[in-house]
Design a protein around this nucleic acid. Structure first.
Lengths: 271, 271
DNA sequence: TAGTGGTCTAGACCACTGG
DNA sequence: CAGTGGTCTAGACCACTAA
């Protein structure tokens, strides 16, 4: 009877439909695991064309609330939209940019047992990791911005002989050469007092304040195949990141399809 | 002509179109920053209806290759599909958990001009931000894990009078009360030497090493409405995070070009 | 104002799933 | 087999942007 009055002029109709459906899901009208009414039914119920209904359902799918299966129907997947902040790190742009804007100088190469490193490495004493120790310089600066230690699992130690070892991130060399991809990167940041030998290389007073970043690269199989430690003088490095709200919740389906602000910058900032 | 032979029976036509367009972008036919041909032109060129063309462009947009703007056109955003590492922070679980497992004690409340704070605040001297200074304790520890300063934009200063001010993150109070949501959180982490007055409160020696975390909460409108500073004693706090490799959205489409593992996204259903 | 993308309709046929 | 979602057409009008 009042099918017309459901829609105001402002909001697209598929927004209104998606809104109604997601609210119904939220209220338990359509429990998780059940099927939503078919597109045909929804067309009739809302008095809209099929494409409009499909567009509404597409929103739900994009939000993770539902999934579609041809021949079956539209299944309710979750009851709530989880608000999630995401930090995006674009492999090609950000990581590489960092590497390209800086230069690395390797000072020492060694094979060390798992216990001998600065950061805990997986494996027992019989497993020797290839370790590269060195400094990283900003493009235009004389003083190093970081002291680094890179540890590579024995299976992939060979990549450290590559010509472009200093220009390309090690983990991407491993991917090229062995097809092992980092499906996860764990990162731990802490403040430290810089040890005297490292301080000397960084040209800062011993025991001065530094930022330590430890990264573990985890393969698709779940193995840690590379661990890196960086120590930055406090005044030469900030770690900054940006977290974007991934999903807007119920009534605001104006979710940012168009705003793709390129994610974070792991930037070095000079004083 | 060959318009017909372009499409085989198997693949949807919009896949074929998206493929052709993304290849053209990749090859530099449409450089980044320029506009793709209009939908009408593409309809004519491929001999397809507008919706089919739009569906193809939607794939490009979902992949981050292009963006659409009403009244302007479809802009090329990048040349390659990039693999992206994402850090997910679930608002409900992670942030709240942190707050629930710790307790806050406010020591000082004041209204300060933008210049008076520890971190740069938006606005001029006439804009006074509500500032709360205090300590945060782990549930079972006597010694504080952080000294914190929370600055709230004048419009929302009232939330700092709330009863549950110490149990709930301020930014979520602002959302509840004013409907202003943090659509973005900028975070800057650095190592510092702890100032003596703060050190005293944290019960560490003056000038000892600390980790400073500055967060800016940005509203949907792009305004910074809350800024927080935390100073942690180095030995009592690490910042750790996990970045997961994310795959581009439509696996059916990307699989053709990029040989990604199939069937990553969507339902977990089986045959 | 002209031209863009955004929304919407009312049809159609196909591919897939389940009984 | 009947019914589902997937693809596709040929129109239409609207909202926005730039000249």
């Amino acid at each position: 009877m009042s099918a017309v009055s459901l829609f105001d002029a402002k909001r697209p109709r598929y927004h209104v439909v998606a809104d109604a459906l997601s609210r119904a899901i939220q209220q338990g009208t359509y429990p998780v695991g059940t099927l939503l009414p078919t597109e045909a039914v929804l067309c009739a119920r809302f008095g809209l064309s099929r494409q409009t209904i499909r567009e509404a359902i597409r929103l739900l799918v994009d939000l993770g609330l539902a999934s579609r299966r041809q021949g079956v129907g539209t299944r309710v997947e979750r009851r709530d939209v989880s608000q999630t902040y995401v930090q995006r790190l674009e492999a090609v742009s950000d990581i590489w940019q960092y590497v390209e804007e800086t230069s690395r100088k390797v000072l020492k190469v060694a094979d060390i047992p798992a216990e001998g490193a600065r950061a805990p490495l997986p494996g027992d004493g019989t497993r020797k990791w290839r370790m590269l120790e060195g400094l990283r310089f900003a493009a235009d600066e004389r003083r190093p911005i970081a002291w680094t230690q890179v540890c590579v699992a024995p299976e992939y130690a060979a990549v450290t002989d590559a010509k472009d070892r200093d220009r390309v991130p090690i983990f991407s060399l491993i991917e090229q050469r062995f097809g092992v991809k980092a499906s996860r990167i764990r990162q731990d940041i802490s403040a430290i007092s810089i040890r005297s030998d490292v301080a000397k290389l960084l040209r800062v007073p011993a025991k001065s304040v530094g930022l330590s970043v430890v990264r573990e690269y985890v393969s698709t199989q779940g193995d840690v195949f590379e661990v890196t430690i960086s120590v930055h003088p406090a005044e030469r490095y900030h770690y900054s990141m940006q977290l974007d709200l991934a999903y807007a919740s119920d009534s605001a389906f104006t979710a940012d399809r168009l705003t793709l602000p390129a994610g974070l910058r792991g930037s070095s900032s000079k004083k």
